[in-house]
Amino acid sequence: MNRYESLEGRIDAVVIGASAGGIEALTQLLPQLPASSKLTVLVVLHVPRDRPSLLVDIFRPRCRLHVAESQDKDPIQPGTVYFAPPDYHLMVDIGPQIALSADELVNFSRPSIDVLFESAADLYQRRVLGIVLSGGNHDGAAGLQAIVRAGGLAVVQSPDQAAVDIMPRAAIAAGSVDYVLPLDQIAELLAAL
């Protein structure tokens, strides 16, 4: 049986942060989620702030889960992947619903991974799992620790396997995490939730 069996049913939401090399990592990860999954998946990928994002168009045909653009106050649905829009922070709020903000850049980024992770820690407490993927900055490290403090689960892509290892290494250095895994095993873990 699956080594992540004990996690079944524990998690409602998965939050994912990625930057440089992130599209490739997400392309390996998100299509693996089974159509039966009840997870809400929220993704911050650092994208240029001044251009429309093509992420929904890229991932919708590749994923078995529904892929949605994030609009402020949209009710959050299970079995759905949400991407942060360019130039807005993506958060989750009581409802649960999507909350966008145009607040200052955090870690030189908008959207910022820390902002999403901290709001998800508040809302979902121990029922959230955070994943830090490939990237060339430190965004996500503090947010992942917020998830740990709230009792959620913290996962980091193996730095050896990441296209750019700075972000995974920063996330590991910031405190304890539950799993450091290559992408195929992260996919296996997600499928078990």
Partner: peptide, 9 residues
């Protein structure tokens, strides 16, 4: 005011 953003600030 929306809660998530207010908490953060």
């Amino acid at each position: 005011y929306a809660q998530a953003s207010l908490r953060r600030r």
